[in-house]
Nucleic acid binder design. Structure first.
Ligand code: SF4
Ligand code: SF4
Lengths: 137, 137
DNA sequence: ATATATAGGACTGATTTTATCCTATTTATC
DNA sequence: GATAAATAGGATAAAATCAGTCCTATATAT
């Protein structure tokens, strides 16, 4: 199962997909969760993280909710995943060299640095504009 | 931490690196574990998996141990990782479409299929011959 | 005032990761 | 044949992470 994104990240992408679809309109957690099949209280945690990352903004109180802050071509899968999971990497030594004392001589370490960079690039290339365009909406 | 390979997979790569370095020679679990800084009993489990996957072969009894079965250009990081972790994918729906009932209409699903294939390709391109060559041995 | 929303932290159960340990089996050597 | 050194494989367990809930505080439209 490893090397997979978490349910939280998958849910976060659904949230953004939902809000992008509203074209700047607002939606409540209840709405997002129900429409995107996400447990309500879990969805609440997730949109909070998305808010802190600046991908969405929140309005409190009656008539409150969340709305997207950027246009679909300015948000990528990488943005959303890293908003909820933090910086991603293929091996622990990429983010923290000191985590492994073999790193200085390790012949595999550079591979993970390169593969991580390549994945981040690819995830970054999938903007929501592109995702929707390629799926035909 | 998600999207990372496990310690088990990292250890497995160290095991193969060790055996490749012996150029067809044999080594015991004790030897591999001690030289590659892997807990002994964990290393024992790992080389068993590598044996089942056909990457190494085992000899039982006194003077027994493990030796590599292929040349370094015929073993890639992908081979080793999938030997211990099974087939990898970036999201659950890639390996098992039925795991998510949104899959048929999901605009993101094709992204994960494509990204998974791209990662598998890149991991497959890192043979141990290449890893050693690029590290300068 | 009240009802409806988000903010945020504490908590929990389930699952996975990261091992350890034990018994059985194989085999070289004395 | 006995013995010592090795792998095979299953059972078990501690720790960490994941997935999700719950509760209180705060904001705001009506
Ligand atoms: S052994 Fe090499 S690849 Fe593995 S964690 Fe250490 S530095 Fe990274
Ligand atoms: S929502 Fe889409 S991307 Fe996420 S698991 Fe389901 S099919 Fe896959």
């Amino acid at each position: 199962m490893s090397v997979q994104i978490t349910r939280e990240a998958d849910y976060a992408i659904r949230c953004i997909l939902h809000l992008v679809g509203l074209d700047g309109g607002m939606s409540t957690v209840r709405n997002i969760a129900d429409r995107e099949s996400i447990p309500r209280s879990f969805a609440a945690k997730i949109v909070q993280k998305l808010t802190k990352a600046g991908l969405v903004e929140s309005v409190r109180g009656v008539k409150g909710g969340f709305r997207i802050t950027r246009s679909p071509e300015e948000i990528s899968l990488l943005d959303v995943i890293e908003a909820v999971e933090g910086p991603i990497s293929m091996n622990i030594c990429v983010l923290d060299k000191k985590s492994c004392d073999r790193q200085p001589q390790c012949p595999v370490h550079p591979c993970w640095v390169e593969i991580t960079e390549s994945i981040r690039e690819r995830l970054g290339s999938y903007t929501f504009e592109r995702i929707l365009r390629e799926s035909g909406r």
